[in-house]
């Protein structure tokens, strides 16, 4: 898994570096640097070919569209991961709170119903067993 990403990362880094050098050549162009420019252009094409090859290895990788929004806004995409984890934990705690409350309610209801309807609750317990949830 990680090797595939490493491979893509390596190719992307090479590609970016090549583009950077291309930019430097172009920013103050001299007639003598035409051969270097041509070489860099073909490096760029071969770099794109390499990146294209990596695509086959990463077919089943899904990237949330929200990450792209973060990148487009010039924000660190790790903030998205952070917010996702925080949201997941908050929701997890909320649901746990609801489950705990319902569990307490169930046990209280069973005990109170046992007081008011002892026979019916005895039958109920006979069907379900002593499955009063532990608190």
């Amino acid at each position: 898994m990680a090797e595939r990403f490493d491979n893509l990362e390596e190719h992307l880094e090479k590609f970016i570096e090549n583009i950077r050098q291309l930019g430097i050549i172009v920013s103050d162009f001299q007639p003598s640097s035409q051969a270097g420019l041509n070489q860099k252009l073909n490096f760029m094409i071969s770099g794109l070919q390499d990146i294209e090859k990596c695509r086959q290895q990463l077919h089943e990788i899904n990237v949330p569209l929200e990450v792209f929004e973060y990148i487009d806004q010039g924000r660190n995409p790790q903030l998205y991961t952070k917010e996702c984890l925080e949201r997941a934990l908050a929701r997890n705690e909320q649901v746990k709170g609801k489950i705990d409350t319902m569990t307490k309610f169930k046990s209280l209801l069973i005990s109170e119903l046992g007081k008011v309807f002892p026979e019916e609750m005895a039958k109920y317990k006979a069907i379900h067993g002593e499955d009063a949830p532990s608190l």
Partner: peptide, 9 residues
Amino acid sequence: KVKEKLSNF
């Protein structure tokens, strides 16, 4: 704290 800017990433 995660740094805010993309250039930090």
